[in-house]
Structure formats: structure tokens, C-alpha cells
């Protein structure tokens, strides 16, 4: 979700500095507070590697809605990282 976006080298640098374990702990904690659909769609996309089209079928929502959830989740996670690691 993060590394594929070339605009945010900051996240890659943070990943190098913190290590994946620390980043995953933060992501787990933040996701824990997210609404259930956001958590679920993030999990399907990132952890279980389903495509947007597959998630759309699984969830019974449009591809655009899935993409919207992922964009919002990414945005909120980035915001949380910027607050946590200024």
C-alpha cells in the first residue's frame, strides 16, 4: 500500500529507520480503531493479496468503493505515521 507509491519516499525511509516490526505494530494499533469495513478491505488487499476486483466480489460492493476505502485507509494511516513519527 505504501511502498508502491513513489510520491512518498518518507515512508520508505521510515521503514528503514524503524524496521517492519515497529511499523506493523503501529498499523495494527491504528487499524484496530478503524471502522470494520476499512479494516476488512485493508486486510484482504494487503495481507491476503486479493485484487480490487476480487474484493469487490467478496464484499458485494463496486470496484470504485473498494478503491475509495483503500485510498482513505492509506491516507489515514499516513496521517497517523506523520503524527506518531514527526
Amino acid at each position: 500500500v505504501f511502498i508502491e507509491d513513489p510520491e512518498d519516499e518518507w515512508i520508505e525511509k521510515l521503514n528503514e529507520e524503524l524496521g517492519g516490526d515497529q511499523m506493523h505494530k503501529h498499523i495494527d494499533m491504528v487499524l484496530h480503531r478503524f471502522p470494520a469495513p476499512m479494516k476488512s478491505i485493508y486486510d484482504l488487499a494487503v495481507n491476503q493479496r486479493f485484487s480490487v476486483q476480487e474484493i469487490s466480489k467478496i464484499k458485494g460492493i463496486s470496484v470504485e468503493e473498494v478503491e475509495s476505502y483503500l485510498v482513505r485507509t492509506r491516507k489515514h494511516l499516513l496521517t497517523s505515521f506523520k503524527g506518531r513519527y514527526p
Binding site: H32, R33, H76, S80, R84
Partner: peptide
Amino acid sequence: FLDDIEKFSNTEWIQMQEDYSVD
């Protein structure tokens, strides 16, 4: 939570992490 996510300070994030770890 999402409405306030931009407002949380570094200290608040650390506290949230500690609370989450305890849970």
C-alpha cells in the same frame, strides 16, 4: 477516531500504542 486522527500528538500516539499493547 478518524475525525481526530490529524490532531493526535506524538505523545498521544505513544499512549495509544501502550494501551493497545496492554489490551
